[in-house]
Amino acid sequence: MRKTLQKLFGLCFGLLLLFILAIPGFAAQRQIIDDAKLLTNDELESLERTAARLSAELGYDFGVLTVQSTGGQTPIDYARQAYDLHGFGRGAEKNGVLLLLHMDERDWVICEKQPERLNDAVYREMEDAMLPYLQNGSYAEGFAAYMDAAVPYLNGSRELPDDDGMGAGGKLALVAAVSLLPAFIYCAMQLSKMKSAKAAVNAAGYIPQDGVRIDQRQDLFLHRTVSRRPIPQATAKSAGTHSSSSFSGGGFSGRSGKF
């Protein structure tokens, strides 16, 4: 009896999921999913309205998903699956980006569906814009900042910055390194062949077999010193030195880090 109930329940749930996924309009209505309960109802509604307006104007979804736990999954994997599961994205290519906050570990992930309309330099700008708010608990402002930072690049008012974060100087340096380094290594190797006379520094070659007898050995303990150093607490929150890294794969590109 119990098993049948469970089966029935599973079937209903599956159908419900299909139903949700099959109706794009339904998914579009919910772009801010606050499972970790970080937002007030007013904040949620306001963000939802903003996201809906941007979605219509830009043909691009800004999703936000907050969870307490990812159930052991890596935040990036979780974000990738959640993007599809919750039906984020506009149009046939499901254009959009999702911000995942994983509260237990204080992870954040910006995860954009490929083909991307943003790039890593923009993800970094989004990160820089939202992180100060996330760090002091102003989540609604953080989410708004995350959207605002990307909008100029989507509506064409600004051009995408260099993806690799490398300016002309960096590229020149790269070209110089790629060309000069092998030339330098080759020449240094050839030059080293020109010198073959070197003074000997030791006499290791003149120690006969069994010529080493070191039989007086004493290791005497003297004393012990103990030093205690406090572990600096919550370094991630201090002085804006957050670390983050980019990722790409599985149909998504993005950045992740801690807040």
Partner: peptide
């Protein structure tokens, strides 16, 4: 060793002596 709040570093100091003979032939 590490506790929740601090890192404890213990340094043990020793005096080590070594003695013996090494043969060298026709350097």
């Amino acid at each position: 060793a590490q506790t929740a709040r601090e890192i404890i570093t213990t340094t043990e100091h020793y005096r080590v002596t070594r003695g013996g003979e090494i043969a060298f032939r026709r350097i």
